[in-house]
Design a protein around this nucleic acid. Structure first.
Length: 511
RNA sequence: GGCCCAUUCGUCUAUCGGUUAGGACGCAAGAUUUUCAUUCUUGAAAGAGCAGUUCGAUUCUGCUAUGGGCUACCA
């Protein structure tokens, strides 16, 4: 019997989650659901310097908006609580000490200034400084200092860190579910800090391995930026004697900027003209704001669909997927190895596809807040019908107002181009005639109005385009919009006649 | 600089040694249309380079180039 799959999404609350993080969470979620496993949310707040208030709430709200459900962890609890690393301090110290006792780690007392100086010195000599087997016995470490001295320093309250004692010249053989086999010689690695006395917190590496073990994580699915520290993690599992229950690893390709090089970062969004965050964000420290997909009018299902396909594909030509379909079809084997450039245009296309598929009542629910913001109070039925008529031209919910405002308010001005083209010659006279034709109609339904008006146009020998566009000028005020009978039937006879009268009274024809 | 990863149309990608190298976004043209759109049809557009393995390489191997990641008492 297979072990129950347990995956985790473990963000650091150092700011808003960006779309790369959302995709990592999504792949974890899809994998967990597909295998009937558990999705755990762990908050990795071991960097007290970079903690940002509100970031954790932002992460929770983002995942919720995306439809990524958490089974266990921060916000929902679970058998391995607490799930916030800052609340697990005591656990990590115990394990760090265990490593020191076993000879896999040691104390180091070097000051940040001393290390800085060493780095600069090496740099000046054209080399890179590495805290490793070559230097650790010459530095302020428990490997060189007598035991009493080490104890005295600790007792005295000197600051210390615990570093991993990276073996020399050993090849670590690793497996990655996406990349295959990878091997690295430990001599190219350094002695990473595992625990720091200053804030009594572990660094990522220690906290991560200890928690993944304690929380019985079976698959670690994370960004490619972690691949270089995979050998360290393998060695940590070995040092703890946990190699047998070590999780499988999958390192996801990075999300790249749309132009230029580099991975997508938090700064890119507003510069590139598209959001990099799922939700609107305001920095509590600087007051700076950043746009979000939600506020920009994206549908969460479209956003997720687009993100899922950025780095994964089903091997078929299907492009539109519900969350259930993604869960059924996802596989780590079909995740690509190279970085994917995020494409604003494609994101827009996905959203448009989802917009087109919305029912009138779904549209109404999404559109009502926007209507109210414009001071329009209408029934859900009217809101949904207007949005439904125009949805095929909309890529975003936020496009709807420009597309449908004429259904609710008479034109306040007439677009110059349309007026110049149609408000001239015989058209004003024809419009007066059309007004009388319309005034005589009792059944103002789309079909009936169309039948009567078209019959009249034909009988008079007028051009359909000429008449309709003049009417469009009166009712919409611009050269856009749906078929004119959609407009007349929606606004009704009284309003139709009023808008015609408005045009007749207020705009002097050209010529 | 060192280590690791990657490399098919502009972009996201399919191909698991033999294909006219397929699809999607975007772009262009045409059709449709009472406007704006939508929609439909068509088109342009790719195997980084060089060796090798092989009857045969986009696919396997090596080198080079390019891109990216990491190289913190950050994650």
């Amino acid at each position: 019997m297979e072990k129950t799959v347990r995956v985790r999404f473990a963000p650091s609350p150092t700011g808003p989650l960006h779309i790369g993080g959302v995709r990592t969470a999504l792949y974890n979620y899809l994998f967990a659901r597909q295998h009937g496993g558990k999705m755990i949310l762990r908050i990795e707040d071991t960097d007290s310097q970079r903690f940002v208030p509100g970031a954790e709430e932002y992460i929770l709200e983002s995942l919720k908006w995306c439809g990524i459900e958490i089974d266990e962890g921060v916000g929902v609890g679970g058998p391995h609580a607490p799930y916030r690393q800052s609340e697990r301090r005591e656990i990590y110290l115990k394990y760090a000490l265990q490593l020191v006792e076993a000879g896999w780690a040691y104390y180091a007392f070097d000051s940040a200034e001393a290390l800085d100086a060493l780095r600069k010195e090496a740099e000046a000599a054209g080399r890179a400084f590495a805290y490793n087997y070559e230097v650790r016995e010459r530095l302020e470490t428990s490997l060189r200092l007598p035991k009493e001295e080490v104890e005295a320093r600790i007792a005295r309250g000197d600051q210390w860190v615990i570093r991993f004692r990276m073996p020399e010249n050993e090849v670590v053989e690793m497996d990655d579910l996406i990349r295959g086999h990878v091997s690295v010689n430990t001599s190219t690695l350094d002695d990473k800090v595992l625990y720091k006395s200053a804030d009594r917190l572990p660094t990522y590496h220690l906290a991560n391995i200890v928690d993944d073990h304690l929380m019985e994580i079976t698959h670690v699915i994370r960004g490619e930026e972690w691949l270089p520290s995979l050998p360290l993690h393998y060695l940590l599992y070995r040092a703890f004697g946990w190699s047998g229950s070590q999780p499988a690893f999958a390192h996801l390709p990075l999300l790249l900027k749309p132009t230029g090089g580099g991975k997508l970062s938090k700064r890119d969004g507003d510069k590139m003209g598209f959001p990099v965050f799922p939700l609107f964000w305001r920095s509590p420290a600087t007051g700076e704001t950043a746009r979000g997909y939600r506020e920009d009018g994206y549908l969460p299902a479209a956003f997720i669909n687009m993100l899922a396909l950025l780095g994964w594909n089903p091997g078929t030509e299907q492009e539109l997927f519900t969350m259930e379909e993604l869960i059924a079809g996802f596989s780590l084997e079909r995740v690509s190895k190279s970085g994917a450039r995020f494409q604003p245009d494609k994101a827009k296309w996905f959203n448009a596809q989802y917009m087109h598929r919305l029912t009138d009542s779904e549209l109404a629910a999404l559109y009502q807040p926007i209507l109210r913001a414009h001071g329009i109070e209408v029934s859900d039925e009217r809101a949904g019908r207007a949005a439904g008529i125009m949805k095929e031209r909309a890529a975003f919910i936020t496009d709807l107002w420009d597309l449908t405002s004429f259904f609710f308010v008479a034109p306040a001005a007439y677009e110059e181009k349309q007026a110049r083209k149609y408000w001239k010659g015989d058209n004003p006279r024809i419009l007066r005639e059309l007004r009388e034709v319309l005034a005589a109609i009792d059944d103002f339904s789309l079909e009936h109005t169309e039948q009567v008006v078209h019959g009249w146009i034909e009988q008079q020998g007028y051009g359909v385009g000429q008449v309709m566009n003049t009417l469009r000028l009166a009712l919409v005020g611009a050269g856009k919009g749906p078929g004119m009978y959609d407009v007349t039937s929606f606004i009704g006879k009284e309003e139709t006649l009023r808008r015609i009268d408005n045009l007749l009274a207020n705009l002097t024809p050209a010529e």
